[in-house]
Computed example of a mutant assay.
Amino acid sequence: MPGVLTPDRTRQDAPAAPSPTGTSLRARTSAMAKEHLRPTTLFLLVGGVVFLLDTAMYNLLVFWSPSQGWGAGLMHGSPLTAKLLTIALASCLTYLGNRLLTFADRPRPDTTRSIMMFILVNLIAAGLQLSCLAFSRYVLGLDSVLADNISGTVIGQVVSTSFRYVTYGRLVFPRR
């Protein structure tokens, strides 16, 4: 249909069909939310479960003694080593959870490359988390249960999890 005649007998062109690139902001936002909502939710679920395990293991190693109960644990004098051990175990569980749940819809990557990238990303993330704990312990001089859990577990976890979320989807489990 080339055009429409108006009451004053002039020709008016019919409105053009919307182009796919000219979609509304609302439609683009909705599409992006649909694309990212499921993986983000699963990533946070896996991370939440592993976070609880990491926190429990760290507190047992640093603040619980089998003979004396709560106070100074077996690794109270070595909090960074204790945190490194718990991060290593948590990382293994995180890889499995994210491979099987969060990024299950993506093609299986080359296992060697995927694991090497996962190790690299987690070494960097562990460094971020350990630096939060080290700053609290050795710069601020705070070594209580509350201080360790706020700096190493909460703040460190937020920083390292944000880094992991961005890098896992791009480097460890790419779309291809």
Rank of each mutant, 00 (worst) to 15 (best):
T23V: 13
S24F: 04
L25P: 01
L25K: 03
R28M: 15
T29K: 06
T29A: 15
T29C: 15
S30Q: 13
S30I: 13
A33V: 12
K34F: 06
E35A: 15
E35W: 11
L37S: 10
L37Q: 04
R38Q: 12
T40E: 05
T40P: 02
T41P: 01
F43I: 06
L44Q: 08
L44F: 13
L45W: 03
G48M: 12
G48Y: 00
G48H: 02
V50G: 00
L52A: 15
L52K: 03
L52P: 00
L52E: 10
T55Q: 06
A56N: 00
A56W: 05
A56R: 05
M57P: 02
N59C: 06
N59L: 07
L60A: 10
L61Y: 06
V62L: 14
F63Q: 01
F63Y: 14
S65G: 02
G69T: 01
G69I: 07
W70Y: 03
G71Y: 03
A72S: 14
G73S: 11
L74S: 01
M75I: 08
H76N: 13
P79N: 00
P79D: 11
L80N: 09
T81H: 07
T81K: 09
L84P: 03
L84W: 14
L85G: 05
L85Y: 05
L85V: 14
L85C: 15
L85N: 04
I87G: 01
A88Y: 04
L89K: 00
A90L: 07
T94M: 09
L96D: 09
N98E: 15
N98D: 13
N98A: 05
R99F: 08
L100Q: 15
L100T: 08
L101I: 10
F103G: 01
R106S: 07
R106P: 08
P107F: 03
T112G: 09
T112S: 12
T112A: 15
S114H: 03
S114L: 06
S114T: 10
I115V: 13
I115W: 14
M116W: 01
M117L: 07
F118E: 02
F118A: 01
I119N: 05
I119L: 14
I119A: 15
I119E: 05
L120V: 15
L120Q: 10
V121T: 02
A126S: 13
A126N: 04
L128W: 03
Q129L: 08
L130Y: 04
L130Q: 12
L130P: 03
S131F: 07
C132Q: 01
L133D: 04
L133G: 07
A134H: 09
F135L: 13
S136E: 08
R137A: 14
R137E: 08
R137Y: 10
R137H: 15
Y138I: 04
Y138H: 15
V139M: 09
L140R: 11
